[in-house]
Design a protein around this nucleic acid. Structure first.
Length: 507
RNA sequence: GAUUCCGUAGCUCAGCAGGUAGAGCAUUACACUUUUAAUGUAAGGGUCCUGGGUUCGAAUCCCAGCGGGAUCACCA
């Protein structure tokens, strides 16, 4: 089995051997003590110069400009890039010039990770740099790093833009494209901000099963796996709703989980087979409370991220300042189609869909038909954050019936930039009603709807012990992150999006 | 799943009326002790995605496959 190596890869292996011949371990085990990072130097050196006379820093070599007896190089650590200056006589004060002439100039490449000691200074062109007094190879790179160059006005050259390359080799993408790293830092900031708000509100972060024998809490096709010892099929969860509600039954007032969910459906730029949803449930509240809480939560997230409530998404400016607009689903459909569907039966709805040129399936029930109309004609119009409220009962089998409007449930979805990013309701806690709703789902299943929910008898048993009135919500973290970082593809906010396997010829 | 575009050096790309491949950066060598897309001179580097077909001859034309992007369908 031989690996096909390019000229550059062969050369780097030769350099590796030469280092070893010189008695240098290219992958040393000992700790390299760091006392500063690149960002710290860049931000604080000018006003605190005395503090940067003896720095020790490590990073990856990103570029080298060789001036003969001196070199400029740029290294990158986790915080920033910084220029280093290496002069032959400074790192080789004696007659032995091997360290500079051989180890540095011949055997160190772009992509290698080095540790240096030195002092910070400003070059005559005004760039804060580190004057190196000693350097050490900490890890030799055997593959050449794609070089992205940027000129003074910020134009980049040879930027690696091939999505396949970037997603499959995200580690390279992260090294060479700083804006990618920034997106993922923002993702973590978003999650941290939400977590802080929920913790401050007294909610408890919990973990619930990913492997479930009945995949519940949503309508979607699941992944199926098998447990060998129990010899039973298990499903990867499509939602964690039913487990979080069991915990509300158990006496917690508020619980939340950032849950990886899995759905065995198509993939595109807004769908990955595994994705993250925040769900949280609060006892003794209703969906009106949840609207208020969630709009404040999102306003806070945006404020924490950008210090203001507005975000640029594509060519649009979106303002997350609370309160958000509230529109009922029937009003939304009336406004965008001119049709009042509030009193139509299934046949009537089918006719409306036909008139509006909306594709429907025979298996679709009343709720699904209304959802199709909303999706086709209304959804895209809500750019600024808007709560769409009061959904038909047929499409919300886990939601409490509306307190005043028959046929509706107390549910809202939050639409931003024409897309749904949250789904919430007053949770159905009437066990008799819940059982009937599950049975309705069973009928849909018999009509051929392969996404209809299964009956979860243990969940019904839990409700029969009594669940307090509860408000619950699910927020798509990937989609929220896409929006708040102005990315159009979910693959841009997942470190390792699902890809078809690379087939490798075995030789 | 459907339609459509794409796959050439480590990276970004050119090459296509069919004649066994080019540029810039990167790499190698030399010069240069504050440069910054450093510069100058020279050199090396390719199963042109894979497999078939047409042809005297295919990176180029045709077919199939693999991978990716975009649009659509389903969904969060």
């Amino acid at each position: 089995m031989s690996q096909h190596l390019s000229e550059q890869e062969l050369l780097r292996r030769q350099k590796l051997a030469e280092l070893q011949q010189l008695g240098i371990n290219p992958y040393p085990a000992d700790e390299f003590k760091i006392n500063v990072n690149a960002l710290d130097i860049k931000e604080n050196y000018e006003r605190d110069k005395l503090n940067y006379k003896d720095v020790s820093i490590a990073g990856r070599v990103m570029s080298i400009r060789d001036m003969g007896k001196a070199c400029f190089a740029v290294i990158q650590d986790s915080t920033a890039r910084i220029q280093i200056y290496i002069r032959k006589d400074d790192i080789c004060p004696t007659d032995d010039k091997t360290l500079y002439d051989v180890v540095w100039k011949k055997l160190t490449d772009i992509g290698d990770i080095i540790g240096i000691e030195g002092y910070v200074f400003t070059t005559k062109t005004g760039e804060i740099s580190i004057h190196t007094t000693s350097f050490k190879i900490l890890s030799k790179a055997l593959k050449p790093l794609p070089i992205v160059k940027t000129d003074e006005s910020g134009n980049s050259f040879d930027e690696v833009s091939d999505p396949e390359f970037r997603y499959r080799q995200r580690y390279v993408d992260l090294i060479i494209n700083p804006q990618v790293r920034d997106t993922f830092k923002k993702r973590t900031q978003i999650v941290n901000s939400i977590r802080n708000t929920l913790n401050n509100a007294g909610l408890l972060e919990v973990e619930t099963p990913i492997l479930q024998s009945i995949p519940g809490g949503a309508t979607a096709r699941p992944f199926i796996t098998h447990h060998n010892a129990l010899n039973i099929p298990l499903y990867l969860r499509i939602a964690n709703e039913l487990y979080l509600k069991r915990l509300i039954v158990g006496g917690f007032d508020g619980v939340y989980e950032f849950a990886k969910d899995f759905r065995n459906e198509g993939m595109d730029r807004t769908h990955n087979p595994e994705f993250t949803v925040l769900e949280f449930y609060v006892a003794y509240k209703d969906y009106n409370w949840m609207m208020k809480f969630s709009e404040e939560l999102l306003e806070k997230v945006v404020l924490d991220l950008y210090g203001k409530t507005t975000v640029t998404v594509g060519d649009k400016e979106i303002d997350f300042a609370a309160p958000f607009k509230r529109v009922t689903m029937y009003d939304a459909i009336k406004e965008h189609t001119g049709v009042d569907i509030s009193n139509l039966d299934e046949e009537g709805l089918r006719k409306v869909c036909k008139d509006l040129n909306i594709h429907v399936e025979a298996s679709m029930g009343k709720g699904k038909l209304i959802d199709e109309i909303f999706g086709a004609k209304c959804e895209g119009n809500y750019i600024q954050p808007t709560f769409i409220t009061d959904y038909p009962v047929e499409m919300s089998p886990l939601t409490k019936k509306h307190r005043t409007n028959a046929g509706l449930v107390e549910r809202f979805e939050l639409m931003v930039n024409g897309k749904e990013i949250a789904n919430a309701y007053s949770e159905l806690n009437d066990p008799i009603d819940q059982r009937e709703r599950f049975e309705e789902q069973l009928k849909l299943q018999e009509r051929g709807d392969d996404e209809a929910m299964f009956i979860d008898h243990d969940f019904l048993r839990a409700l029969e012990y009594g669940m307090p009135p509860t408000a619950g919500i699910g927020i798509g973290i990937d989609r929220l992150t896409m929006m708040l970082t102005n990315n159009a593809a979910i693959q841009e906010v997942l470190f390792f999006p699902q890809m078809r396997p690379e087939h490798k010829a075995e030789d």
